[in-house]
Amino acid sequence: MATILDIALVQSEIFWHNPENNRRHFASLIDGIDKKVDLIVLPETFTTGFTMTPSEIDPSEGNRTLTWMKEVAREKRAAIAGSIPFFEGGKYTNRLLFVEPDGKSHHYDKRHTFTLAGEHRSYARGESKVLIEYCGFRICPMICYDLRFPVWTRNTEDYDLLFFVANWPKPRIDAWDTLLKARAIENMAYCIGVNRVGTDDNGYEYVGHSACYDPLGHRVAFSDRDEVLYVKLDKSRIKEVRDQLRFLDDRDEFILQ
């Protein structure tokens, strides 16, 4: 029997600095998902927008959102993932939360903070990759700017799915499209990107381009509209490609400093 992962990619506008409204907004979009899915993916900083002043948000909002995600995951019987500003240990991180239907949670803190916007001054960077075993898939979650760094995202762990949540603006959207495809090809894995749409309070415009690429880099899903995009991943496709084209056997060995 084939191992299948059905995913809903939620591409939407985000209310600036308003976690309560955003939770209510995304709850409404998720309620509208009328088919069985295993995983729901939301954009980067989906409760606030891509803010460089996370201290203006109540520090308790991170745990409020985690509680909300657990409720959604339980009710929809699907995992849910997305990143938020998270305050812990006296510092903020841009933290991706991945919550399973049984309440089990995982987190990944963004490694590459976006220095062009000053993210490194507002958020501590993460130090570790995270691998999540879920529904028969090995999943590697990443956040936005990580997409530009192929050494960090290199498939040394034989993961099946690499996904990125993002607030990736319109002026550099060609890079987003190109790098998502490249990460799929070089890692011989499914690669998914979930972006936002609309304009934030800093005047940056976002045009979506949430997409999924298969292990050969073929685009199997794409959207530039405010919508929920559905993708179906077949693990047998990964095995087929890797058995036929054994490129990962020739991976370079390296140690990250």
Rank of each mutant, 00 (worst) to 15 (best):
F114H: 03
L29C: 04
P169M: 08
H120V: 03
L233G: 00
L233T: 07
D252N: 10
A124D: 08
T178V: 14
P101I: 11
R95G: 00
C212D: 10
C144E: 08
D177W: 14
L9P: 09
T3A: 07
G136C: 07
G103N: 09
D252K: 11
D250I: 12
K110R: 11
S83M: 07
T45R: 06
E253P: 03
F15R: 13
W16A: 06
R172Y: 09
L229Y: 07
S210A: 01
Q244Y: 10
Y190R: 06
D252C: 06
V151I: 14
S28G: 14
S210I: 08
D38K: 07
C135H: 13
R64I: 01
T51M: 09
C144V: 12
L42D: 01
D160S: 15
D158Q: 15
T93I: 06
T153F: 05
G82D: 08
K70C: 02
I80G: 03
L216S: 01
C144G: 07
R95V: 00
D249G: 00
I14K: 00
S105L: 12
T199E: 15
L162I: 15
A182E: 12
E88I: 07
R237L: 15
T113L: 12
Q244R: 14
M69R: 09
R251D: 03
D214C: 00
D252A: 08
K181A: 01
E119K: 03
T156A: 10
M142T: 10
T47M: 13
W176Y: 11
V228G: 00
I238M: 12
